[in-house]
Every structure is written in structure tokens, then in C-alpha cells.
Amino acid sequence: MSSLRVESLRYLGNGPIDLIVAAGECVVLSGPSGAGKTLFLRAVADLDRSEGRVYLDSVERSTVPAPQWRRDVGFLMAESAWWAESVGAHFASVDRPLLEELGFSAEVTEWPIARLSSGERQRLALARLLAVHPKAVLLDEPTANLDAGNTAVVEGIVERYRVANAAAVVWVTHDRDQANRIADRSLAVANGRIEPVTNPAGAIEGSRS
């Protein structure tokens, strides 16, 4: 059970932003490029300097060592980075069934990073993140390089993880249909602020819940 609470968060000229994501809730953030969605997630993960308070349940960010905080609020960057030669060296623990579900055979851990496609990287990055067992999950366009089939697989895996761990999920996407499929609540980021989505078609609001 982990809720994520953001209070008057200011970062790099953006904010203040308040946001509460309940334990087990999936909040979708959308908005034009450059609106500050990625910067918001970076600030929550304490990767950039920010003012304000962020809580995981009742635990305030500054009371936790930064590496521990980042393990707890797992942030999946839009572009994953890989440094070792083989895939396996990047994993805290290997969950073979999960890798299989993502479409990888058992020997994927031996694969050299150089031969991965961008879609493979994106799926492996999700598995790598979940191997750290974060209490909340921040996803920055996690299916941007994936076809429809793999997108569905990733959505399913995140859904299962969210429910099983009652994890708060913040999911950034440009894809309206995806937002409709996964969101408990949809919010828009604009001009460094977060607002409820207002769109004439009403396509997103009240989507899943």
C-alpha cells in the first residue's frame, strides 16, 4: 500500500504542483511536448532540485536517503540507458516469467546491449525497473516505441503490478486511447501546472473508473 502525495512542488521555474495519487491508483499525465511532464517526474524522483514536499504514504522524501527514495518511486525514463555489455548485468534480480511475458527467451540476459532494438530496450527497461520493487511507479511514455501487441502486454504488466502491490502509478502518455484504457484519472500538464483534463469530446474524463 503506497500512496504518492506531492505538495507545492516547485522545480526549474515550474509549479507549484499538488498531486495525490492513491495507493493502487493510475493517474495519466498528458500535455504538449515541453509542458514539463518529464521534468515533473524527474523532480518527484529527486533527480533535479525542487522545493516542496513529496510523501510516499507518510514518509517524506527528505527523511529518506536519496538512493532509497529512488528505489521506492521507480521512474522509467522515456529513453532508457544501458552501461554494461550484457543485458543481465543491469538487473537487480531476474524474473524469468516476466521477461518471457515481455517476449524474451531465457538467454536474453546474455544478449549484448548493442543488438537491442529501441522497442526491446523499452520493454527490458520496464522489467529492470520492476526488479527493484518500487512502491510507486512513474512511467514516461513507456510504450512510445512499441507496437500494439507489446503495448497491450506492457499495460497488462503495469496493471498487475499496480494491483498486486497497491502501487501508485503516474503514467505520462500522448496517446488518448491508451489514457482511456488505463487511467483512473487523467490530468493535463500545461505551463508548469497540473489541471484536470478538459477537452470538448470528453474522451478522457471519467474514462475507466
Binding site: 536517503p65 538512493p67 525514463m77 540507458a81 543491469h90
Partner: peptide, 9 residues
């Protein structure tokens, strides 16, 4: 930053 995000110091 990726390594930091995965919890390394």
C-alpha cells in the same frame, strides 16, 4: 542518471 534512478548512490 539511469543508475541513480535504479537506486545506486
Amino acid at each position: 542518471e539511469q543508475r541513480l534512478l535504479l537506486g545506486e548512490d
